[in-house]
Design a protein around this nucleic acid. Structure first.
Length: 416
RNA sequence: GCGGGUGUAGCUCAGUUGGUUAGAGCGCCAGUUUGUGGCACUGGAGGCCGUGGGUUCAAUCCCCAUCACUCGCCCCA
């Protein structure tokens, strides 16, 4: 084994894996574009502030998972840990706020400096959607429905569960936060150390604790749903009505609190039990406060992102659509090489896949063509070339049909 | 960031209670077939036994460290 290794938590996607990766991205892109969400690409690096402000200092991403880079100018540069804040920054930077709504799709690598394990990487890949400038719950339902559509098309709909919750609007959240803190203060000493810290920094996150003692205490805590004002309640009900109407199954999880600060109203997560200790494959929510946090105008937004690496673990090679058939071009003589290449190119121009076979003799070449999975081989040697003809030989299955054909007939015999 | 496990050929894995040249299957290359693939047979290449240090007459094996992977915690996609 070589001592040359990729950087920790990063990996090569060899063709077999990359096919799955590309399939997922293409599927998502098609679904997004059919709904008018066009692709956007932002830089892989951003100023740290882009994420620090919206995500909050107390979020795990900012406090311990930022992949920071020291650049020569002394700027605080980070490899982006997620897409939403970067897209929001791009919207502001480019002054795109004039014509709303904005509908974006993105796909690309994100980076988090954390300990790798199954389904978790330091370079992870995400695909995501953002809908900016729509406050209407119709937007929430469309965005969630596009997520569902993607998972369905990937054949994963039965293997994931959609969990949803609402954090309410700012007013409701503040009211609840006060009630929750008041309640938990009385039990402060009994809380886990983590939760005690969060009580000061980000009390809502205590709701999704896994500590048994904390859970016991939370049983007596005030419920967020009871603090919702009527507006927040109506919005959430409307979203549920939409999901039901569109036949998208979901379950309510009132402990679902997204880790990032900028969320409000609906939060959702498609989870699975197939990925070890990782459960979320696609998650998102509404982030009405994000644009303002970044210094932009108050534009509401909703979106989600999916972990492509995690989806890849759930999609098998067999699930991929069939690829185009392979045809092999074999030249037997240096004199014919360029003629063979030229004929191959002509066939490629007509949409055929033609692989040049590199080998020492016909036997080796056929072996390589066969191994490559070619269904048809074209063999050009001195004899054929002299008559402006070429041998066509079937390789697939038991087929052994071989015949001399004219160049103009090549497209008739190749497979697509 | 914390705890457990693993690391031997390109891949999947044996093995050595510390002792000359470390094995198998698959894959790869070549030959049987100097212009005809799959199958078969024959042969071959390929390992600082993850890396560094220690103990020892002797380490792939024991000890320590380190790196990577892996499982879990935290958290997330």
């Amino acid at each position: 084994m070589s001592h040359l290794q990729p950087v920790r938590g990063m990996r090569d996607l060899l063709p077999a894996d990359h096919r799955i990766y590309a399939y997922i991205v293409e599927t998502a892109k098609t679904i997004a574009q059919r709904a008018g969400f066009d692709e956007i690409a932002t830089p892989i690096m951003e100023f740290k502030e882009v994420f620090k402000r919206p995500l909050g200092d107390t979020s795990d991403i900012v406090s311990k998972e930022m992949y920071e880079i020291a650049d020569r100018g002394g700027e605080d540069i980070v490899l982006r840990p997620e897409g939403t804040a970067a897209v929001a920054r791009a919207v502001i930077s480019n002054g795109l706020t004039q014509s709303l709504p904005l509908k974006f799709f993105y796909a690309g690598p994100m980076f988090r400096y954390e300990r790798p394990q199954k389904g978790r990487f330091r370079q992870l890949h995400q695909i995501g959607l953002e809908l900016l400038g729509v406050a209407d719950p119709l937007g929430d339902v469309e965005v969630i429905s596009l997520a569902y559509q993607l998972l369905k098309q990937l054949g994963l709909a039965e293997r994931v569960t959609l969990e949803i919750n609402t954090l309410g609007d700012a007013e409701s959240r503040l009211a609840y936060r006060n009630k929750l803190v008041a309640y938990l203060q009385d039990h402060r000493g009994d809380l886990s150390p983590d939760s005690q810290t969060r009580l000061d920094s980000n009390p809502l996150r205590i709701l999704d604790t896994k500590d048994a003692g904390d859970k016991e205490i939370l049983k007596g805590a005030p419920r967020l749903s009871e603090s919702l004002n009527s507006f927040s309640r109506e919005v959430f009900a409307r979203i549920q009505e939409g999901l039901t109407t569109l036949n998208i199954p979901f379950t309510l999880n009132d402990h679902l609190v997204r880790g990032l600060d900028y969320y409000s109203h609906v939060a959702f997560e498609f989870t699975t039990t197939e990925l070890g200790s990782q459960s979320a494959v696609l998650a998102g929510g509404r982030y009405d406060g994000l644009m303002e946090t970044l210094g932009g105008p108050a534009i509401p937004g909703i979106g989600w992102s999916a972990g492509t690496d995690r989806l890849m673990m759930m999609v098998a090679q067999e699930d991929l659509p069939p690829v185009s058939a392979i045809n092999a071009m074999i030249s037997l003589d240096a004199q014919c090489d360029f003629k063979a290449l030229s004929l191959a190119q002509a066939a490629r121009d007509q949409g055929f896949r033609v692989d040049m076979i590199y080998g020492s003799n016909l036997g080796k070449c056929l072996k390589k063509a066969d191994k490559a999975g070619a269904q048809v081989a074209l063999i050009l040697g001195e004899a054929e070339s002299a008559n402006d003809e070429i041998q066509k030989k079937d390789l697939a299955g038991d087929a052994k049909d071989q015949r001399m054909i004219g160049y103009e007939d090549i497209p008739l015999w190749l497979k697509k």
